[in-house]
């Protein structure tokens, strides 16, 4: 019980803050509760398949296979797979981090995991269609065309700026 309170303490503090807001500014407080609730429902409906796939990936895909597909020497194939995995997903970006953790644990190259995160954040297929219909095809295509090299560049530079110890630490904590 005590453990539970400790783990959720930040969440509980936020709930209290929300209640205080509700007491002081009922309209904002009510709106906040409504938004939180609808986002929670949204999250819970989107998230189960992500975690099931994560579990299956962890159990079935051999480390050696993952290293071959997305590891240090995977080259262009690794980049393509990272883009595909990220773009084919559905769900908020924060749901991508546990998946990224499993990819790291299995021996993916760090830059490929960052590409996966980049693709998940910006080149998700349903989002692209939505963007095109709301802001026009030119807007979407221009952004898409720049985003592809941009995501790769950000991934490579970020990896380059980490020293071997820092990278090792990331891989070690993903293994836990």
């Amino acid at each position: 019980m005590k453990m539970l309170v400790k783990r959720y303490k930040f969440f509980l503090v936020l709930i209290v803050i929300n209640i205080v807001i509700y007491a002081l500014y009922p309209t904002i407080g009510q709106r906040s509760i409504n938004i939180t609730w609808s986002n929670t429902v949204e999250m819970l409906s989107v998230i189960p398949p992500i975690f099931i796939l994560l579990g299956l990936l962890d159990v079935w895909v051999q480390r050696e296979t993952m290293i071959k597909l997305m590891g240090e020497k995977s080259g262009i194939l690794g980049i393509l797979i990272a883009f595909f995995l990220g773009s084919a997903a559905a769900g908020p970006l924060y749901a991508a981090f546990p998946m990224a953790g499993v990819l790291l644990k299995k021996g993916s190259k760090f830059s490929n995991v960052l590409i996966f995160i980049g693709a998940w954040s910006t080149t998700k297929i349903p989002m692209l269609l939505f963007e095109a219909s709301a802001l026009g095809w030119m807007f979407m295509i221009t952004r898409f065309v720049i985003n592809i090299p941009g995501i790769i560049l950000i991934a490579y530079i970020t990896e380059k700026l980490l020293n071997p110890n820092e990278k090792q630490y990331i891989f070690d904590s993903a293994g836990r």
Partner: peptide, 17 residues
């Protein structure tokens, strides 16, 4: 990560309100 998820959801709620 459920604790973090829930915290993020409440922060988003307050922020968007």
């Amino acid at each position: 990560i459920l604790p973090q998820f829930l915290a993020i959801l409440v922060i988003i709620g307050i922020m968007l309100a």
